[in-house]
């Protein structure tokens, strides 16, 4: 085996391997982590977060603008404190409201942001005051059954 031919094959192998890695990185995967340097964090408090998980997307008008960085239980107010890491490119008014939505009927849960009308923008470590809890299916069914029973009750 000639040495140069062998080197050529190994070179081809290494290039193919790195091409496969690049393919996996660019075409198959995506970096969900918004880097800390070009992002800011805001906190939203919810009575019930349903099935929200860390790293879930934060969307506004359907576009991903950030990720859920952290979920904690506040033992003083008995609420869930959800830290949202938002991309610095997107500024939101101070009175923006946050709600926990579900994509599709059984899809993953995400935080939906609805911009308000305030002229001041949310800053790092700010708190989103207006929040809407996750819809719990059992409660909805309960309400529905209760409503039906009311309808059918004798006057």
């Amino acid at each position: 085996m000639n040495k140069t031919v062998l080197d050529l094959w190994v070179g081809l192998f290494v290039i193919a391997g790195f091409a496969a890695l690049l393919f996996l990185a660019l075409k198959v995967g995506s970096t969900s982590a918004v880097s800390a340097s070009n992002s800011y964090e805001v906190v939203a408090r919810f009575d019930n977060i349903g099935g929200l998980k860390p790293r879930a997307p934060v969307k506004s008008a359907g576009v991903v603008v950030g990720r859920v960085a952290d979920i904690r239980f506040d033992n003083e107010t008995f609420e869930a404190a959800v830290t949202l890491r938002l991309d610095k490119r997107y500024a939101f008014p101070k009175d923006t409201s946050a709600g926990i939505m579900t994509s599709g009927l059984l899809g993953e849960q995400y935080v939906g942001l609805e911009a308000g009308g305030d002229s001041e923008a949310l800053k790092d470590k700010d708190r989103i005051l207006i929040t809407q809890d996750a819809v719990v299916l059992e409660n909805l069914i309960g309400q529905f059954i209760y409503g039906k029973a009311q309808e059918g009750a004798p006057q």
Binding site: G29, T31, S32, A33
Partner: peptide, 19 residues
């Protein structure tokens, strides 16, 4: 096929851990 794959495969968590 591709967009579902891209949105749920994380570069650091999945690909780097595989490497």
């Amino acid at each position: 096929f591709w967009s579902q794959m891209k949105s749920s495969v994380d570069f650091e968590q999945d690909i780097l851990n595989g490497v």
